[in-house]
Design a protein around this nucleic acid. Structure first.
Lengths: 335, 335
DNA sequence: GCCTGCGGTCGAATCGATTCGAAGCATCGC
DNA sequence: GCGATGCTTCGAATCGATTCGACCGCAGGC
């Protein structure tokens, strides 16, 4: 069932069918009605490949996710679903591609094979090989997180620096004097992963500004690691009364360790940070924290990409999101 | 940069380039070398749309996920990444489509627009509108879970019935006499979601066979719900010493409630069931449970689909996986 | 009454691949 | 020496859409 068949049944030429569907040229009301009727009867849909070939665009975007090996955090996973939903609203399909290691072929297929019109690149590093590849291939892309040369690209990011600084000031305002940052894994920080880097910067700057005694360390993305992290931390610095975390995967372990060590939240120790809403609410007691607005980020990323596709050549745009800190019940003045 | 340009630079016709690349006809070694050299120099890749149009297949598959609104469980999310990886190994790209409600347009685009060669359908119901739609459109698909007419389709599923029965027998063997099943949410069970249905069947049959006192109830997919579930259960039936769960999202709440109520695992109460490995290991103490083999399921689903695409008309095949129960430390004889 | 303008429609070219039939050219056997 | 054979290679048709230029008929202006 192709456009020729529709044309035949409606008694018009193929081009007329195309125009009736796209509206790019006028078609008389009677003819259009007849054509639409036939289309509806037989359930016709233009062949996506043929259309893509003729139009020179695929109406699909690529979403490059971190490789499957490394567990995706719930934030990232929710983000994928939200991107698909946002793209769907704009009649765009989403092609998924892992990146890194053995998956580079998939990335190359997508990019060089012109399978997609543009790409959303998740979890970008300050220096990022994939971003460089896209740039040199001339494929429009929007990064989640920003690269070292932030000014030249399109990106959406969270203001981790500002948010973590707000958390620190919140603790300082409550009277805390000795605090600690629970960062993402060391390898992410070392490889120049923006959020880890900037969280650290924001933490140190804000702590220094308020003259707090502060330590920052990394913790693997796992509950078990969170548990030992807390044990080690409180053994080394028993005076810590405020915790700031951007590591949501470690939260269940943090909660367990604090409970086991008899440190009640928030009576003995306050906990805050930047984590997905879901995780903030599952913590006991619910975390006072900046909720990562994944749905918002997904929507903005797709919006930026759609805009860039529609009007190539416009100067790069970017979005830095700074959601408010949701007051729940995990912070209080120190004992 | 298209095949014509490559042909010109290599001094051959376009068809020769195509044959050199596909190997579908002989090309002399010298010519092939020259062509490949040019291709390598300019970094050429065939245009996916043109190729799809000519070949009549897209080399892409669709993955229909549950709608974004309902939170994806970690099992489902890991599955998505694993499907993409498995498809990549076969040079297949993956198009994501949510289904249900407002997302049906995306589903239709994929199916009717011939964007994909075949589809993997997640979380299938016993009677499933999407499956029916695919069947009537003639699009090959593999279901995760099986529909009411299991014999006529391709599917991959977990033997929830057998696995839950094994868990029950394991508890019975240890001497437990009063047990409970923590199922997935009621609306899933009612809508004919296979795993929930079959877990219940397996639970009741095995409990009856061993003359155990058994109750089965549903629990929303949330930690908080797990907590109240346990409170209610133990209030109503304080004699329960064995729990079987297929609801991984409720596990953190189950753990918290048991701890708060002073029921040590496994000393006072044993816990087992069918959950993702990750969740089993995060539980304290680690769960003795059947680990949902998502990577395996993803691989088999893609394998089945690839096979079906390669040889249409072969009789339906299906795979029922029954992973072993991993002995960890959450079960023991009753007190 | 003729030319112009315009709404509506058609035919043909185009996008970039694959694939089929046929042609060119040695080599080989008789 | 001539036709048959086999290996390479080429040219043209094809896939199913979009889009451009042209054509046609009709109304309006002078």
């Amino acid at each position: 069932m192709n456009i020729g068949e529709i044309a035949k049944r409606a008694g018009v030429s193929r081009s007329t069918v195309s125009y009736a569907l796209s509206g790019k040229r006028a078609v008389s009301a009677a003819t259009r009605r007849r054509i639409l009727q036939v289309i509806d009867d037989v359930g016709y849909r233009p062949n996506a490949s043929a259309r893509a070939l003729a139009e020179g665009r695929t109406r699909a975007i690529g979403l490059v996710i971190p490789p499957a090996g490394r567990r995706l955090t719930p934030i990232q996973l929710g983000f994928v679903a939200d991107v698909v939903a946002a793209a769907g609203r704009r009649e765009l399909d989403v092609l998924l591609s892992p990146s890194g290691g053995e998956h580079d072929r998939s990335f190359e297929r997508m990019v060089r094979g012109r399978r997609v019109d543009g790409v959303i690149l998740m979890e970008v590093r300050l220096r990022d090989a994939r971003a460089a590849r896209l740039r040199e291939s001339g494929v429009p892309f929007v990064a989640i997180g920003h690269t070292a040369d932030a000014a030249t690209g399109y990106w959406v990011d969270l203001d981790y620096q500002g948010l973590v600084a707000s958390c620190v000031r919140h603790l300082a305002d409550l009277g805390h004097r000795e605090i600690a940052l629970i960062n993402r894994p060391r390898e992410l920080l070392d490889s120049g992963y923006g959020p880890a880097r900037r969280a650290l910067d924001g933490f140190e700057a804000a702590a220094a500004a308020r003259s707090l005694s502060a330590t920052a360390s990394c913790c693997p993305d796992e509950a078990a690691a969170g548990e030992t992290f807390i044990e080690d931390l409180l053994a080394a610095r028993p005076g810590v009364t405020g915790l700031v975390t951007i590591n949501e995967a470690a939260l269940p372990g943090i909660e367990r360790a604090l409970r086991r060590l008899g440190r009640a939240v928030p009576r003995h120790i306050s906990v805050t940070g930047v984590v997905g809403r879901h995780w903030a609410e599952e913590f006991h007691p619910p975390l006072t924290a900046a909720d990562v607005p994944i749905t918002d980020m997904a929507e903005r990323a797709v919006e930026l990409l759609a805009e860039r596709l529609a009007e190539p050549g416009t100067p790069p745009r970017n979005v830095l999101l700074a959601p408010p800190i949701s007051l729940r019940s995990s912070t209080a003045p120190p004992p």
